[in-house]
Amino acid sequence: MVDLQTDEEKAEAIKKWWKENGIAVISGVAIGLAAIYGWRAWTNYQEQIGQQASLAFEELLVTVSQAAVVPPPTPSDQADADEDADAADADSGVDANPLITLATEQQARLSDEYSSTPYAFFGQLAVAKAQVDQGEAEAAAEILRSAMQQAPTPLLKTLAGLRLARVLIATQEYDAAKDVIKRYDGDQSYAADFAALRGDIALAEQRIEDARTAYEQALAGNAAAAQLIRLKLQDLPAPADS
């Protein structure tokens, strides 16, 4: 710039500059402000959604903890319920357990409204527990399978896989269980637990020596319920060669 400008000249220069760059400046400021407020609104929204999902999940957990202490309906209750259901509404009656119905509804809400949060996945784990506790292992296997599709991290996916394999063993679908185990057994953290499951399958299929090896692996790796695995190991018949 030149020092010897008059005030008018300066004003002229500023006006000229503004004419050339004014729109850019205004839109720049506007974009900046929009970005700041947008970001704030977005994090606020995330916080709100997260809190609502968290609360909905807590409510589901209450139902699940009830399902753990209330004994499942006995076959006679079931029959009564079926009769009532037949009388009232011919469509329902397959799933007459009110606790499971409630848990499933609460979970469905998590999946529908909060599918972007991990609570949708946690909700599926929770419902699976309620179903297992209430003697509905097949349904639990189904929901665990769908949980694995939307697990937020690989580690949680492995955890869901471990639980799925245990449910499959309970329903005696050994081949399916083996399949799941083979796929997720690579994760070091749960390797011992998977080994214990391989032992259970081998035992169910009368492969005593395989069961022994698997249980020993599980114990070496600090598997869950180690005391029970130790008992299972001790209970195996003596090796054939001695």
């Binding site: 957990l61 297992v132 003697g135 245990r166 063993i169 309970a170 008992l231």
Partner: peptide, 21 residues
């Protein structure tokens, strides 16, 4: 809490445990 309170024991596991204990 999430991991612990969603853990379960299947019927088969419970039976096995009672059988042995």
């Amino acid at each position: 809490r999430v991991v612990q309170s969603t853990a379960f024991a299947t019927q088969t596991e419970v039976k096995q445990s009672l059988r042995l204990m």
